[in-house]
Amino acid sequence: MRRRLRILAVGGAGLAALGAVAAPAGAAGAGPEADLAYHGAVSLAGGRVDVRFTPRNHGPSAVPDATVRLRWSAPLAYGQVLPAGCARSGAQAVLCEVGALAADDLGRPVRLRVLLRGAPSEVLLETDTAWSGGSVDRNRQNDHQRVLVLDTGDEYYF
């Protein structure tokens, strides 16, 4: 993923140096349109956060590969083991592979448990698409979620 971002940054700098202008999102060649969404539940108890969600592609096109970013308002504890397909991305974020998603279909459920430093009494969880395999998502309302989670052990749905 870092290599993809590096290539995009270098390529973008090269285009800017040549005076090129990026095409608008609706222009031809901007990539197929897909509408990604993530719905699930999150709970917090004693610094332990349990997250489960199911990705969905509302279409109209398939997504060849997708990655979701989960960010917490508190830093993650050191030395924890994440499930396969997930990796830390800084002090407060995790990236999880979603994989390919057919149009108008559900992906495989994702379950994740993380420990937060200092056992906060509340935490804000933000989710959004970090990578969509070149697909364009014109409805960012349902793939970007913000959930305030209190340290009660109760589930909060998004």
Rank of each mutant, 00 (worst) to 15 (best):
Y38R: 07
G19Q: 06
V136Y: 01
A84C: 01
G59K: 03
V81A: 15
A9V: 14
L76C: 07
D35W: 09
A9E: 15
G19T: 07
R146C: 05
P120Y: 03
G133A: 11
L115D: 14
F158L: 08
R113W: 01
R2F: 11
L18R: 13
L70H: 01
C86E: 08
P60Y: 04
A100S: 12
R56F: 13
R52P: 00
N142T: 11
G31V: 08
A102D: 15
D105I: 03
N57L: 06
P75T: 11
A119S: 12
L124T: 14
L95T: 04
P64A: 12
Y156L: 05
N57D: 13
G134I: 10
A103T: 04
A119V: 04
F53P: 00
D128N: 11
L106Q: 13
R108Y: 05
V110C: 00
P24C: 11
A16T: 09
H58G: 12
L106D: 15
R138C: 00
E126S: 10
Q92Y: 04
V21E: 10
G90I: 13
C96V: 07
A41N: 04
A34I: 06
L150M: 10
G19H: 04
A17G: 14
E122F: 05
A23F: 08
R117T: 11
R3I: 14
L150T: 03
G134H: 09
G26Y: 11
